[in-house]
């Protein structure tokens, strides 16, 4: 696979320069095979748009989100305070995340611990790049395809960001159709609150199956997501219904990268 241009904060600091924005990759984006593809797609877009970005690389560590949702406030604050020390050390002002959980934690829960940054979810950055003309899309491979967007809880309800991913996808000239439970009424994929890292409690159905059933009822070509955990859950749900050949689960960043042929 091609080697991407991914500068680190340390490299920038060594040159005495500061990047426009820090790309907070997140644990899933760094280690999960599916999420790594999203990370690479986003980096290709950033490079294509000539965004001066950097990552922390090996200096990045979990934001503490799953620990916090699970109730381990100690571990969360340990992570938060050491991350803040690193971020403040580099005098970071602006952060884009590839994950709504990192986004929510950095944006809302770091300030009172001493970490104040302007934090964007990657769909917001994409919206910004499209609005300012730094990336342009004309048609592309998703033209006329039916796409439905699954709202990540920590982007939508958690932070009232509903329009950014939708506005980005408008550029695809695709047919965007909403599920009945969307935006503020969106149904969780089942991974939040640290559920990603444990077995579900006893019930009569898996949450991702309930959600994917709703999405598949629209006969979409693509179920779009904006979160690595949703991506896993929805992908598993699509497999549960043996639909993986006909229905793709793609992150909004991948949609844009693919539409641009990146």
């Amino acid at each position: 696979m091609e080697v991407l241009n991914v500068p680190t904060m340390a490299e920038y600091a060594a040159k005495g320069e500061t990047p426009e924005i820090l790309f907070w990759v997140g644990c899933a984006g760094s280690f999960d095979d599916r999420a790594k593809k999203v990370t690479r797609a986003l980096v290709k877009i950033l490079n294509h748009a000539n965004v001066k970005f950097a990552v922390l690389g090996t200096e990045e560590s979990c934001t503490g989100d799953p620990a916090k949702r699970a109730g381990n406030e100690f571990l969360f604050q340990m992570q938060a305070m050491s991350n803040i020390a690193v971020l403040n050390g580099y005098e970071v002002k602006k952060i884009v995340t590839g994950c709504p959980h990192c986004f929510n934690t950095l944006k809302n829960e770091y300030p009172s611990l001493g970490g104040n940054y302007e934090v964007m979810h990657h769909t917001q950055l994409l919206q910004d790049l499209l609005n300012t003309g730094r990336i342009k899309i004309e048609g592309g491979s998703f033209k006329g395809k039916k796409i439905t967007f699954h709202d990540p809880c920590y982007l939508g309800r958690g932070n009232d960001v509903y329009e950014a991913p939708r506005e980005v996808m408008l550029n695809l000239e695709a047919e965007l159709e909403e599920m009945k439970r969307s935006k503020a009424k969106g149904l969780c994929c089942g991974a939040g609150g640290a559920q990603m890292f444990k077995e579900a409690e006893k019930g009569n159905k898996e949450i991702n199956v309930e959600r994917v059933e709703e999405a598949l009822a629209l006969n979409p070509d693509v179920i779009a997501v904006g979160c690595p955990f949703c991506n896993t859950m929805i992908t598993d749900g699509v497999k549960h219904f043996n639909k993986e050949q006909t229905v793709k689960v793609l992150d909004v960043a991948e949609l844009i990268a693919q539409a641009k042929g990146l």
Binding site: C153, K185, C188, G190, G192, G193, A200
Partner: peptide, 11 residues
């Protein structure tokens, strides 16, 4: 432990 912290109840 069944909660996904999705905030639907709060909403």
């Amino acid at each position: 432990w069944a909660c996904t912290s999705c905030n639907a109840c709060v909403q």
